[in-house]
Design a protein around this nucleic acid. Structure first.
Lengths: 332, 332
DNA sequence: CCTCGCCACTAGCACGTGCAAGCGGTCGTG
DNA sequence: CACGACCGCTTGCACGTGCTAGTGGCGAGG
C-alpha cells in the first residue's frame, strides 16, 4: 500500500506497475494533445498514479521543459504585513489554476541575502513597485526577461495596480464630513518615498478637483515630537482634517493630538490608509481605507500569466475595489 | 562579450570554449575532492565561467543530486510582519553560508493554495509552531522527512525555539510592579491555539514559581464585548495586572478598560507580547516583550542545517535574547 | 628498455521528465 | 486479397548536472 518509506515514486514506477511504457503514462498525466490513448488505459494510469501517490519531480519537469512555472513576487520590506497575505493568497489561487505557482520573497535592502530569482529561475518576477535598474540588470543576467512592473514607462500606465484611489477617497471622506482645510501626514522613510509621493500626488489632485485649498503637508515619523509639531502647525493653519499616508502615520497624529489635549475627531479628524487591523483597536478607532487585496492579487496574477504565456490579458483591468472604512477618528 | 540574449550558458559551453571536457569544469566548479586538477586549469575554468556569466541550472542540480538545498520556512498568518522579516533575513544569511537557501511561505488556513513544499521539495521544513498531524502527513507524502519542530515530543525539547521566555518575563515584570493577582488574555483563534497554549503554560509556570495565585484566564478576541466581559471578570477577581497573549490582545483589553472608564495602568496594568511597532503608538503606549528575531533566525537556520546535514548542531543553543519593553500600560 | 605508479584529465552514466518519431495491429475500401 | 488509414502504444532522445571509472602520458626505478 503505502510507499516503503524510501524512494520516491516516479512515472516509471507507475508504468512498470501497469506493464505499460513510461511514455504512455506521461501522455496521460500531461494530457498531451495529439496522442490517442484509450479511455480504459487512461483510467488505469490515473488510478495507479493516485494509488502509488505519484508526484511529478518538479526539478525534472523544470529541466526538461525549460521553464519552472514559477512566479516570484517581491514584497517590499515596509510593513505591509497581513493585508498582503490576502493578496498573495488570491494570486496563488489564480496562478495555480493556470499551472503556475507563486513564491514570495520579502525584499531586504541591497547587499543582504541572495535574491531568490537567482536560484528558482522564475518565469516572471512581480513587484509592487518598479525595480531599480541594478535589480533589473541582475535579473536579466539570470535570464529573467519577464518583469512586472516593466522598466519601460511607455506601455505601462503610471498606476498599473490601481492604487491611487485610496487618497482620493480619503480626501472625499473628510470633505463629506465638512472639512475644508486638510493636512497630509507624510512619513520620511526612504524605503517608501515613492509610495508616499504617489499617494500625496493623488490626494492633492483630489483636493484640487473638489476646489479645496492646497494640502498642508507635514512629516510625521518616529522622531521625537515630529507628530506634535505637525499637529501644532495644522492648528495654526486652521486645518481640521488630516489625510495620513498610512495607518501608522494616522496613529502618530492621533497620539500627538490626544497628548496635546485635543479631541479626536472634535478638534482634528484623521483618516489612515490600508485598514491595518490595529486601527479598530485604537481609542478612538481609526478611519481608514480598505484595499481589496484579493482583487489586487487576482490582477497581479493575471498580469504575470499574461507575461508568462504571452497571451492577452484575461481580466479587463483592476477590479480591486477600494473603500472607506469610517470609524471614530472621523466622527463615525 | 555579454550573452547573445538567448540561450543560457551551461557548463558544457564553458568546457567547449576552453577545449576541456565538461567533467573537468564540473570538478573545478564544485571543488570536488579526490580529483587532481592543475592550478592553471582551475584558474582558466573559473575565469571563463565568470566571463561567460555561467550560472548552474538549479533544476538540473536538484535532479542530479536528489536534493534541492532548499529550506522552507512556514510563517503563520498572524500578524508578525516586519519582526519576522529580520528573522528571515538572518536565517537566509546563515543558510547561505552553508550552500542552502531559504524560501518562505505564509501559511494560509487549510484548504487554500497548494503548499509550496509540494513543488519545491525542500530538504527541511521549518515552522514557528508545531505542524498539525495532517500537515505532517502531507509532507511525509511528498517525501519530506525533516520537519522542525518535529512531531515527536521525545527527542526535541518542549521549547526548541526558546520562545517560552517571553511569558515568564511578562509575569515577572508585573510582579515587580507590585501586582499579585494576574489575569491572562487569550485569543480563541484556532490558528494559533498551539502557541496560545504554549505561552499560557509558560506564564502559569512562572506565576507558580513566584508563589502567585493561579492566573485568571479569559478569552479576548474580536467578538463584541469579549474584552469588556473579560475586564469585568478580572475586576471581580481583584486582578490588577493582565498578561496578554500578544499585543493584539493587549490592545483589546486596554481599549475595553478605557471605554469602561478604567485607568490604565492605574486600575489595570497590561503587558503584551511581540513588541509590535504599533504598541508604541497607542495611548497609553503598551508594554511588551521584544524578541531577538535576528538571533532566532540564526537559531532556526542552525536547526535546519543540523537536520539537513545530519551533523551536530553548530550553535550552542538559543542566543535569542528576549526582553521586556516597559511602556505606559504597566506604569513606565 | 620495460614496468609501475602517478598525474591530469576524459568518457559516460544516471537523475526523472516531455515529447517526436516510429511501429504493429485492425479496419475500411477498392 | 492488397493497400492505405488510423488507432494505441513504445522506443528513444534531450534537458544540464554530479561523479565513478577509466585512459593516455610521463617520469622514476629496476
Amino acid at each position: 500500500m503505502g510507499a516503503g518509506a524510501g524512494k520516491r515514486v516516479t512515472a516509471a514506477d507507475v508504468a512498470r506497475s501497469l506493464g505499460l511504457s513510461r511514455a504512455t503514462v506521461g501522455f496521460v498525466l500531461n494530457g498531451t494533445t495529439g496522442q490517442r490513448i484509450s479511455e480504459a488505459t487512461r483510467d488505469r494510469v490515473l488510478a495507479e498514479a493516485a494509488r502509488l501517490g505519484y508526484r511529478p519531480h518538479t526539478a525534472a519537469q523544470a529541466l526538461r521543459r525549460g521553464s519552472s512555472r514559477l512566479v516570484l513576487l517581491v514584497i517590499p520590506d515596509w510593513p505591509v504585513d497581513f493585508s498582503v497575505s490576502k493578496c498573495v493568497e488570491e494570486a496563488s489561487h489564480t496562478l495555480e489554476e493556470a499551472g503556475y505557482s507563486l513564491v514570495t520573497q520579502t525584499h531586504h535592502p541591497v547587499g543582504t541575502a541572495r535574491p531568490l530569482w537567482e536560484l528558482l529561475d522564475p518565469e516572471v518576477v512581480v513587484g509592487f513597485a518598479p525595480f531599480t535598474p541594478q535589480e533589473v540588470a541582475a535579473m536579466r543576467g539570470c535570464g529573467i526577461t519577464k518583469i512586472i512592473p516593466g522598466p519601460e514607462p511607455s506601455p505601462s500606465p503610471p498606476d498599473p495596480l490601481g492604487l491611487d484611489d485610496g487618497p482620493r477617497l480619503q480626501v472625499e471622506h473628510l470633505h463629506t464630513r465638512g472639512h475644508q482645510r486638510l493636512g497630509f501626514a507624510a512619513t520620511t522613510d526612504a524605503r517608501v518615498s515613492g509610495l508616499v509621493a504617489s499617494r500625496l500626488g493623488a490626494a492633492r489632485e483630489a483636493a484640487a478637483s473638489l476646489g479645496l485649498p492646497p494640502l498642508v503637508v507635514r512629516p510625521v515619523d518616529g522622531a521625537p515630537d515630529a507628530a506634535g509639531q505637525a499637529v501644532q502647525d495644522w492648528l495654526h493653519a486652521n486645518v481640521t482634517g488630516v489625510v495620513a499616508y498610512n495607518d501608522d502615520s494616522a496613529a502618530r497624529v492621533i497620539g500627538a493630538a490626544l497628548r496635546g489635549g485635543l479631541g479626536v475627531p472634535a478638534d482634528l479628524a484623521v483618516i489612515g490608509h490600508d485598514d491595518n487591523p490595529y486601527t479598530a483597536l485604537f481609542v478612538p478607532s481609526i478611519s481608514s481605507i480598505r484595499i481589496d487585496y484579493a482583487g489586487l492579487g487576482r490582477h497581479l496574477a493575471a498580469l504575470a500569466l499574461q507575461a508568462a504565456t504571452d497571451r492577452p490579458l484575461l481580466d479587463g483591468g483592476v477590479d480591486a475595489a477600494t473603500a472607506v472604512v469610517a470609524r471614530e477618528s472621523t466622527g463615525a
